[in-house]
Design a protein around this nucleic acid. Structure first.
Lengths: 258, 258
DNA sequence: CGCCAGGTTGATTTCGCTCAAGCAATGTGG
DNA sequence: CCACATTGCTTGAGCGAAATCAACCTGGCG
């Protein structure tokens, strides 16, 4: 395995940024993610209303969007980049619960519950995120039943994902879970190479990868070594080369304890 | 530990029951679970509408309410008893994902997604469940924004629960997870004894208990033995006696890998 | 009665965690 | 520009937890 030292990209700035967040004149109606976002069900007039009050902000890699314990001030819509949803316990163990992509909505759980955030969200690379104020959002929900229905669909899908993870964590081995995570990441972070192999640009560190499969980072490192030995994938820093995808897929099924 | 052979109660009838499901004249408005169900936000007239078309049915222990792969025909509202939500993989490994109680709603995920059920639901003891037809439900959602909001809140809460489980599975040891599950079950299935101890009547088998904590049933059996040795709980069939609840609570915190 | 499902227990092995050392790439202060 | 610290990662040794395989018990049922 190729040694991977400190990452090349800027990493984990400590301070969060509320400053610099401003309402921009450009409306959501022209946002490139509109089609796949939850807001696609809204009428042009309503979109203008959101566009007028939403606050768009750019984030650098590692910058925090909101943090566990913060009061909920509204919900966030990812416009550009990848955002990680994280949770920490009292001992400082952090678990990366899920990844959010352009069009995804963050923070709606604590918004609906009227409670403080229980998770943190941070940009995993350069990203842009819009915030929509809670008060206006409540009006929109009241006015437009389709919006609530849309969010309901989203919640249902996310719940299904969470149950999937729950199920697989209980059933599969660490190796199989890592393989599955790689398969999953191929969809968003993978590209095809001329030689027919597939390359994944991992959006997260080894530690976070480990927390996502529910293992220690050393263990993940070892599993990677063995996957290389078996010719299933080749790891080099945050880059993963998968010569034959079906081999990786077989990994997922194999350890299902017949 | 007291040996627990075959359970005394009727168990796991193979056939499901669609027959016997009839629209009853008694309306939801008089249903004893109305207050804590998702339907509490509805006006009396709307409740009558549901009451007229909902189909109530009684289930015996182990009877299946719906099964993975079935088309969704509506959603289910638990009226009496405890219902288990289960998921199976291709090898027959089954995982009990969650428990549902009176007032809880089942099957809304596949209803919203318009897809087939991906989980099965079964009565864990004598139970009664009402089904509300999908077509009428869609109208109700369109007419009453508060209903969608209510379901949204429910989905948010369930999502949070799922994330909690995900998080704890990644962090805690098997022993701590079992302790936590027992604590959780105390709320619904526990009763206080005159001597100050607390007795839990487990609604599920050892195997299902094991699947809920993500361990083999042998392992759960061994953990139980050790919990008895340590005087934390006493297991006898499906009955668990906890002399001092705080000791069990300490179990949960302890193995959090300082 | 024998069978079966559910449960317990033991022996063995495998997996994954902890602790610890060390490397690579980067950043920093003198 | 160099010594040095820091961060992220890899690797090894040892150990403990849990899975696997297998035997056996218990109580209900056809």
């Amino acid at each position: 395995m190729v040694r991977a030292g400190r990452p090349l990209r800027p990493f984990r700035s400590v301070r969060r940024g509320v400053r610099g967040m401003t309402a921009t004149p450009s409306a959501c109606a022209i946002c490139h993610v509109l089609q796949r976002s939850d807001w696609s069900v809204m009428a042009p007039a309503e979109l203008d209303r959101i566009g007028a009050i939403r606050k768009r902000r750019e984030y650098g890699a590692g910058e925090v969007i909101f943090e566990a314990g913060d009061d909920n001030r509204g919900i966030y819509c990812v416009s550009v980049g990848t955002v990680g949803v994280r949770r920490m316990d009292e001992n400082g163990n952090s678990v990366l619960l899920s990844l959010a992509y352009p069009g995804d909505t963050l923070g709606y759980r604590s918004f609906l519950g009227g409670s403080a955030h229980r998770t943190s969200a941070e940009a995993l690379g350069p990203a842009a995120v819009c915030m929509i104020d809670g008060a206006i959002l409540r009006e929109l929900f009241a006015d437009n039943p389709a919006l609530a229905a849309q969010f309901l669909r989203r919640a249902a899908r996310e719940l299904e994902d969470a149950h999937d993870s729950l199920f697989h964590n209980a059933t599969l081995s660490n190796r199989a879970r890592l393989a599955q995570l790689l398969v999953h990441m191929m969809k968003r972070h993978g590209r095809d190479e001329p030689d027919g192999s597939r390359v994944i640009e991992l959006p997260v560190s080894r530690r976070d990868l480990a927390s996502m499969v529910g293992a220690r980072h050393e263990t993940v490192s070892r599993i990677m070594s063995r996957l290389e030995e078996d010719g299933i994938a080749k790891f080099s820093g945050r880059q993963v080369r998968v010569p034959r995808v079906e081999n990786l897929l077989r990994e997922v099924r194999s350890s299902a304890s017949a």
